[in-house]
Amino acid sequence: MCDGVGTDIVAVSRIAALIRDRGSAFLQRWFTPVEIAYCTAKAVPSRHFAARFAAKEAVVKALPFAWEGPLPWRSVEIVNEAGGKPVVRLSGGVLTAARKAGVDAVRISLSHSDEFATAIAMVTLTSAAGPTRGGDRE
């Protein structure tokens, strides 16, 4: 059962430009050291950063609560299991809010091409919890 869904699409060229123009300041604001190490090890890092950027946005859209103030983007971490499957790790205030809202699991799927990266996130709530907001955000 799916209790929340979010999706996002990002132009790879936009992320490449942010990396080129803002460098480590951009990367450290949005990504954890684990994400940075994973993406920079790839042949075209901007594709992988863009996919993780889209995934973070999709996760936030799928969560059953609104965040007040600037979101700590590094609290939504996208990592890979040993077989390569991407998974979400929440931490800090985002994890606390998710637990309070009854989030049981967050699942994601990522895809990218030369031009775009996209992600979808699905949230399931514990059986005792219900959605705390209506509709999805854009």
Rank of each mutant, 00 (worst) to 15 (best):
T40L: 13
L71R: 14
K56F: 07
R52V: 04
R99A: 09
Q28L: 08
E138T: 11
V103A: 05
I9G: 04
D8R: 00
Y38S: 01
T32Q: 06
I9V: 15
G83C: 14
M1W: 11
A119H: 03
V103S: 03
H112A: 03
M122I: 15
S91L: 08
L63D: 04
G102Y: 00
A66G: 12
A97M: 10
V94W: 12
A62C: 05
S75Q: 15
T7P: 05
G130L: 11
K42Q: 14
L95P: 02
R74N: 07
E35T: 05
P131N: 13
R29A: 06
P72F: 01
A129R: 03
G6P: 07
S127T: 13
K85S: 05
L110M: 11
S46D: 10
V44E: 12
V87H: 06
V5A: 09
L90A: 04
L18A: 15
T124I: 04
D136L: 13
M1F: 12
A121S: 04
L63S: 07
G130N: 12
L18M: 14
R133P: 10
S127F: 06
V106S: 06
E57F: 08
A82T: 11
V76P: 02
L71F: 10
G93L: 07
F31L: 09
I15E: 08
A55D: 01
A37I: 08
L71Y: 08
G84P: 10
L90Y: 07
N80M: 00
G83N: 15
V123A: 05
A37H: 09
G130M: 10
G6N: 09
T7N: 13
D3F: 05
V60N: 04
I15V: 14
I78H: 03
N80T: 07
V34M: 03
V59Q: 05
S75A: 13
L90R: 12
P45I: 09
A117R: 07
